[in-house]
């Protein structure tokens, strides 16, 4: 029961971190870029790539350590916080918007997000297993 309550609290905190960081990064990105590059969803990119790296670390660690306390931590931090911090739906919404207006930025967004996330999460999985 308390794991479920902590997943709720961690999920709420994850969503708040995403909201705050997205506003901060997006504003800074748009202030310094002109033309098509300004449409790049930099906030969601930073959030999803960083979240993938940390979930890789947590998952790698939890795979190597089977203690119940480690599994509970992985559930609260991974499923709760990082699951809510990163977002698939917003990524798809940005992709749809870019697909309608700016196909080149859309391709960079999808391939860049996938590539950077896969590499960093893979690194995290390996590093987490070494801890």
């Amino acid at each position: 029961m308390w794991v479920t309550i902590l997943v709720f609290v961690a999920g709420g905190c994850g969503a708040l971190c995403r909201g705050g960081l997205d506003a901060l990064v997006s504003a800074r990105w748009r202030a310094r870029r002109h033309g098509p590059a300004a449409a790049f969803p930099a906030g969601t990119f930073v959030i999803n790539v960083s979240g993938a790296l940390v979930l890789g670390l947590v998952t790698g660690f939890a795979t190597a350590h089977t203690a119940e306390s480690v599994q509970d931590f992985a559930t609260i931090a991974g499923v709760g916080f990082l699951g809510a911090y990163t977002t698939f739906s917003t990524e798809e919404w940005h992709t749809l918007g870019l697909l309608r207006k700016n196909a080149a930025v859309e391709a960079w967004n999808v391939l860049g997000s996938l590539g950077a996330s896969l590499i960093l999460a893979g690194l995290g999985l390996w590093l987490g297993g070494q801890l």
Binding site: G11, G12, G14, A15, R18, G19, N48, G51, A52, V54, L55, G56, T59, G78, V79, L82, G83, A84, Y85, T86, T87, F88, S89, T90, E91, S113, L114, S117, L118, A121, G122, L125
Partner: peptide, 27 residues
């Protein structure tokens, strides 16, 4: 926007698990 979009749907869907699962399939 705060409750439904940023909160509920943003928190429900997940990019990090999507990526880690793909990495686990590869490994």
């Amino acid at each position: 926007k705060p409750f439904l979009s940023t909160g509920l749907i943003g928190g429900f869907t997940t990019w990090s698990h999507f990526i880690v699962e793909a990495d686990q399939l590869i490994s």
